[in-house]
């Protein structure tokens, strides 16, 4: 039987830490009427670096040297890229890419 009181404490602590990562930058840099110049600059450019960071983060457990050698990931990402460049429809590309990926990891590899 789980100790629910302990579990609740753990959940609240992890929630507070997560909240801190989202709110602390605002408390530090966002309080004054005038937002610092370099924060506005980072606001403009960070989104362009963040997608690359998130893609690598999502694929952090993929290895070229073991398992399926990253073949499902490469094929599915190629499907996403080609379909997106062709139709410019992100919903379509996400759905098609995910179906291809699920098929590859469940049935082929």
């Amino acid at each position: 039987m789980a100790d629910y009181r302990h579990a609740m404490i753990i959940m609240i602590v992890m929630g507070l830490m997560t909240l801190a990562t989202r709110i602390l930058p605002v408390l530090i840099f966002g309080r004054s009427e005038k937002v610092p110049d370099f924060i506005l600059y980072l606001g403009k450019v960070v989104p362009f670096t963040a997608m690359g960071l998130l893609i690598v983060y999502c694929l952090r457990d993929v290895s070229v040297f073991s398992g399926s050698h990253a073949i499902p990931e490469i094929l599915a990402l190629a499907v996403v890229a080609v379909s997106y460049l062709w139709k410019k429809n992100s919903i379509l590309s996400v759905v098609v890419g995910t179906i291809v990926y699920m098929f590859l990891v469940q049935k082929v590899f």
Binding site: M14, M17, P25, F29, G43, A50
Partner: peptide, 26 residues
Amino acid sequence: VIMAAVTAFMVAARHIFFSISMIGRY
């Protein structure tokens, strides 16, 4: 509790990066 706090912070740290870049927008 300590391990939970450290783990949550490590896993969630990327939000710092995101929040900083939304300050101007929000």
